[in-house]
């Protein structure tokens, strides 16, 4: 599903990732962890092609970064749902429109969009906030909206960068439950966090980064 082969990413003179090699199978739930500045976000950005590797190659859902054309990126991204730590919601649009936009860019008909948006809103328990604006929601609710937006297009891979970073214990637990549910439906998940509590004793795979190096790959 996702394969990194000898990947190195250098910003100016900082090596954010060094010679990283791993591969993830379809349906896996994988945590990326490590201290601040270890390269977690960089690794995820390489997956959704916000960045390109300086060395090595990345394979995503059968697409290879070495041969991938610029024009194909939007179509590849439609297979990847992204949950950002800073939400990246559109604050001048309603909750409904924020989620619907992910389907509108695909040219899907409004009638179908309506059904699917309501379905994902039910999944994140925010059906009653359909017509609210993001500012009227709590941090945990906003994060659930971004999850809804990420999964409404039924991606094969779901990427999350510190999705629980700003949330309290209850909200965090709620969000983890949603991710497990999504994973149970067959979606591959890449989840970056420095919070060990999230993967301790889960038996899920954990990739540990430190200073740009992949230092361990084991079960949590």
């Amino acid at each position: 599903m996702i394969g990194f082969n000898q990947v190195t990413k250098i910003y100016d003179n900082i090596t954010a990732l060094r010679n990283v090699t791993f591969s993830i199978e379809k349906g896996e739930f994988v945590f990326i962890t490590g201290p601040s500045g270890a390269g977690k976000s960089t690794l995820l950005k390489l997956v959704y092609l916000a960045e390109r590797p300086d060395e090595g190659s990345i394979n995503i859902a059968g697409w290879d970064t070495e041969t991938l054309k610029e024009k194909a990126i939007p179509y590849l991204r439609r297979n990847i749902g992204i949950v950002f730590q800073d939400f990246k919601l559109l604050y001048n649009k309603t909750v409904y429109d924020n989620i619907a936009i992910a389907l509108r860019i695909r040219g899907i008909k409004e009638a179908e969009i309506k059904d699917r948006v309501h379905e994902v809103l039910k999944m994140v328990n925010l059906r009653h906030k359909t017509d609210s604006y993001p500012r009227e929601l709590s941090g945990g609710e906003q994060q659930r909206i971004t999850i809804a937006r990420a999964i409404v297009g039924e991606p094969t891979v779901l990427i999350a960068d510190e999705p629980t970073g700003n949330l309290d214990v209850d909200n965090t637990a709620g969000i983890m439950r949603i991710f497990r549910e999504i994973n149970a439906k067959g979606t591959t998940i890449l989840f970056a966090t420095h919070n060990r509590d999230l993967f301790r004793n889960t038996g899920l795979r954990v990739l540990r980064l430190d200073n740009g190096n992949l230092v361990s790959d084991e079960k949590g």
């Binding site: 959704y48 916000a50 024009k71 939007p74 179509y75 590849l76 991204r77 439609r78 990847i80 992204i82 990246k88 919601l89 559109l90 936009i101 992910a102 860019i105 695909r106 937006r149 297009g153």
Partner: peptide, 9 residues
């Protein structure tokens, strides 16, 4: 945001 969601140029 549109771009990250997969919008074409």
């Amino acid at each position: 945001v549109y771009k990250l969601l997969g919008a074409t140029r």
